[in-house]
Design a protein around this nucleic acid. Sequence first.
DNA 1: TTTTAATGTAATCTC
DNA 2: GAGATTACATTAAT
Lengths: 177, 177
Amino acid sequence: MSIMPTTFNKIAEINMASLVYGVKEVRPIDGKPKFTIDRILGLDQEDQHTRIKPYRPWADSLLAQVCVISKSAGASGMNYNEERTTQLSTDSCRQTLNWYIGRRPRTAFTRLQIEILESIFQVNYYPGIDVREELAKQLHLDEDRIQIWFQNRRAKLKRSHRESQFLMVKKVFVKDD
Amino acid sequence: MSIMPTTFNKIAEINMASLVYGVKEVRPIDGKPKFTIDRILGLDQEDQHTRIKPYRPWADSLLAQVCVISKSAGASGMNYNEERTTQLSTDSCRQTLNWYIGRRPRTAFTRLQIEILESIFQVNYYPGIDVREELAKQLHLDEDRIQIWFQNRRAKLKRSHRESQFLMVKKVFVKDD
DNA sequence: TTTTAATGTAATCTC
DNA sequence: GAGATTACATTAAT
């Protein structure tokens, strides 16, 4: 299945990383050391030119706010649209912001939302797009959030079942009821 | 949750499956009324046992292990373990297990593997079978994995194109530079 | 520390 | 093979 990299491979890997554009989000099989030379030097980061821009629509409103603020703070001769456009079209601005914004802010579901999601989950682990849309409307959430919630909920269920399965198997073999 | 030894019959097996694994891997069928009770409860969906058995060769060895272990654990007479073994040997159980064992274990590519795949991808989005076979040999991967990797990589590229297009269109409407 | 929302991508399914 | 979807491994926020 997978190769256990030899020492040679590991060395080659490190050298390659400094030569070739890196690749993001590689998950090694073995435990990833927190601090490798590559990491410290930033050589394991993806090259700017080959990076695919993440889709973060939620960052846009934040970006707009920042730009509005910079407009009101700025005393330049530019008008609003000019300045805003300058900001919006500056990749470095967006990138810097993305660095801060990073991932979507964690959604904090209310108790009621969770209760309803759970009650649906109890009868259907895989609500279709229509049900999800309906839920989104009822709970004032994006459909995306609903979808992710169900995905994570299924994963959680599977985990818990793996655990109980493990316990059952242990019971059989240990004969220690 | 407790399942009595004597309840390991067909019905119990199905119940256990839904209890232990609890995952109905069914997908919504299109062209149905939007919100029926059945729909929301997922009752209008195809029964899992009428589905065509998926081809999962990697699951077979796992299943074999489980059966061997169970058999060796069985002592004499009709005790719990033996009944368990009997069940594990039945076709329906096999099918159920196969289904729930589910997919091929996720392959974790090494960084070097990804780097090489990426470098090939840059010059050829559609490597033929010969290139794929060569890559498979060089990278110690199945050709299947290579094939899937390129399929997913193409999808990723397409996504990124759609997204940057979206951003460009938006930009144009905010203000053209 | 634990739980879980969010992410990226390998695998699967339908066409 | 494309497109859509799901599972899984991991990260990070609470």
